[in-house]
Design a protein around this nucleic acid. Structure first.
Length: 186
DNA sequence: GCCGTTACGGTTGAG
DNA sequence: CCCTCAACCGTAACG
């Protein structure tokens, strides 16, 4: 289809395939998964996969210290769009974790409850109303699920889950891939 | 030059 | 077991 849809404001980007020439990406990094790529800043990334957790953490940490996004972007070799996105998400949810990839609407796509809990402390200073709302939710959940939803307990469980998840994630992240590669090379 | 936004190609996982 | 689809990802480019 030539699809001549006259007023098509969506196509303001470079022609498809310009960004990521599927065959012959200028700088490809061979990994066990064969997906590593290098961006314009020289940073390694995997298209479609989240950045490693320590990079995300570093972005937030640097921003916390007042480092400008452009500097963070250059220093960590992550596109500024990505830095912006991560910081926005962090401000909104208080979590540096990526959202749930995959799955269907009913089970994913919304911010997991524990994100709200994890953000509670961080939001206290910024948005007391949000915190109050979280407290209400907390109360409801506690009433519904009993003491299992005590904050501290939940935090602990959440932390365990995050650590577990992180391990799983890192396996498929640049971290894991590069680590694997290093191991292979060693 | 910096920053927010968005099109794009890609990956993932529940149904 | 395989396929579909909708969610998310980061990059690159625009404004």
């Amino acid at each position: 289809m030539s699809a001549l849809q006259g007023p098509e404001p969506r196509m303001m980007r470079a022609a498809p395939g310009h960004n990521y020439p599927r065959a012959g990406f200028p700088l490809e990094v061979s990994t066990p998964l064969g997906q590593g790529r290098v961006n314009q800043l020289g940073g390694v990334f995997i298209n479609g996969r989240p950045l490693p957790n320590h990079i995300r953490h570093k972005i937030v940490e640097m921003a916390h210290h007042g480092v400008r996004p452009c500097v963070i972007s250059r220093q960590l070799r992550v596109s500024h769009g990505c830095v912006s996105k991560i910081l926005c998400r962090y401000q909104e949810t208080g979590s540096i974790r990526p959202g749930a990839i995959g799955g269907s609407k009913s089970t994913s796509g919304t911010t997991p409850v524990y994100y709200i809990f994890s953000s509670k402390e961080k939001c206290i200073n910024k948005n007391p109303h949000f915190c109050a709302a979280v407290s209400s939710i907390s109360r409801v959940l506690r009433a519904r699920f009993g003491t299992k939803f005590e904050d501290s307990d939940f935090d602990k469980k959440k932390q365990e889950e995050e650590e577990e998840e992180e391990q799983r994630r890192t396996k498929h992240s640049i971290d894991g891939i590069l680590a694997d590669k290093v191991c292979e090379c060693a």
